[in-house]
Amino acid sequence: MGKVVPTSNQKSAAETMASALSSMDGVDAVVSERKNGTSPRNIVSVDCSNKNWRPLAVCMKVEHGVDYCSMITGIHWPEGSPDKNWEVIYHFMRMGVTDPPVVDGMVQPIVKDPSKLEGKDIPLEIEVRIALPETREPTVASVQDIWVGADWNEKETWDLVGIDFEGHEGMRRVLQPHETPVGFHPLQKQHKLRYHDFEEMYDDVQGFRRKPSDTGKIK
């Protein structure tokens, strides 16, 4: 049997963290259980209001040992409700990684047994969702200085989705060309793909057989 983190430990750690986070203003944290695959995963699922995001981020990093920012996703919901026209979703993990100690001039690698981890060393997955109301300039606070790993994630989210991060230093295009027009963010929903039909896409990639009546049709 491999040495893995037991589900029960992860669940109790997630519940501890969720109840601690829920006491903050504008933060609603629950433990959501996901049941795909072989073992259930317990995820700390947090809904946060935009103005409380920065205190929550500091609290997670300092008090709960969340040391790793995995991904930032921006979503444009034009047909959604007016309070949730945009959404920013952060995924964090608590790894509990420290620099290995030096004994007698030799580094001693940290080999922890995952089945015996306790307290803040138990690895956790955290999902934070921030809903933004209808606006032309969606903005959330940057966490670049807390997790450096968020730096390029924020750049990418701004580049592709157009959500701005207040306080982010050195914002620039990362995946699109540098000369992309200001205000063009392709993952916003008003930009459509050109092909209007799967069959046309596969049989007639260059569109030679497009009919005049097809003009303007989009998928």
Partner: peptide, 21 residues
Amino acid sequence: GVNYDIRTAHPYSVYSELDWE
């Protein structure tokens, strides 16, 4: 020098059934 691995920290698939580190 850190043995962090997602296959043991958040075990998916059947990595928990096999004897490995």
